[in-house]
């Protein structure tokens, strides 16, 4: 797991935690992994560009907004991906809260980093599978102006409730909490090197990391 990112989420701003906190982090990493019942589901679709939207062919999902249109420029297909650490991790964090609030905070940050790592692993696997394709980075629902309200239909297409137990609610909050829903663009030709950055992030105006002159580690 990316330790630096864990420190960052805990507010260490480039500093290294003391030994006590490092020990708790170590314990939480182990316990998050023990409680994890991770799963993922993805499907691949061809896409068609419209003005300010990208149609996912064979589904009735339309990825709307300038940022996703720009993100998928040059792509001919997308992978819709949903991944989760599972319900038990939520329960584990809640249990930590009852015993020790600082441990709960650390467990929460560790789990956030873990789900990101898990997505990296999935992506590596997918890159192996689609060797002759070029990948964009993972673009989450809610990034830029890609609306979060697409979540229900996105999950429906993947049958995520049935396959990995991920659902959403009226506020578009995913359950289990450590879950990710995102789009990866696929192209037969090399893509312009884009990197994740603050520009497309919907948190950019309120972000503490940015306020401190840094970033979340994307």
């Amino acid at each position: 797991m990316n330790d630096k990112l864990i420190y960052k989420y805990l507010g260490y701003k480039g500093n290294i935690p003391d030994e006590n906190v490092l020990n708790i982090i170590k314990l939480c990493k182990q316990e998050v992994l023990e409680n994890e019942n991770s799963g993922y589901v993805y499907k691949v679709f061809d896409i068609e560009f419209k003005e300010d939207s990208v149609e996912v062919l064979g589904t009735n999902l339309s990825l709307t907004g300038k940022s996703i249109t720009n993100h998928l420029k040059g792509c001919n297909a997308v992978i819709l991906l949903c991944a989760t650490l599972g319900m038990q991790v939520d329960k584990y964090i809640k249990l930590c809260e009852l015993k020790d609030m600082s441990k709960a905070l650390i467990a929460d940050s560790v789990a956030s980093v873990r789900i990101d790592d898990f997505c990296d692993d999935i992506e590596t696997e997918l890159k192996e599978k689609y060797k002759d394709m070029y990948f964009t980075y993972r673009f989450g629902l809610g990034y830029g102006d890609l609306p979060l309200k697409l979540e229900p239909i996105f999950l429906n297409i993947l049958d995520a409730g049935k396959v990995i137990g991920v659902t959403t609610n009226e506020s578009f909050l995913l359950t289990p909490r450590k879950s990710v829903a995102c789009v990866i663009g696929l192209s037969k030709n090399p893509l312009d090197k884009k990197s994740r950055g603050c520009v497309t992030c919907n948190m950019k105006d309120v972000c503490q990391y940015r306020a401190d002159g840094g970033h979340c580690g994307f």
Binding site: L10, Y12, N15, P17, N20, V21
Partner: peptide
């Protein structure tokens, strides 16, 4: 940092 603040608390 936050974890230490909460530990103190």
């Amino acid at each position: 940092f936050l974890p230490q603040l909460i530990l103190s608390a």
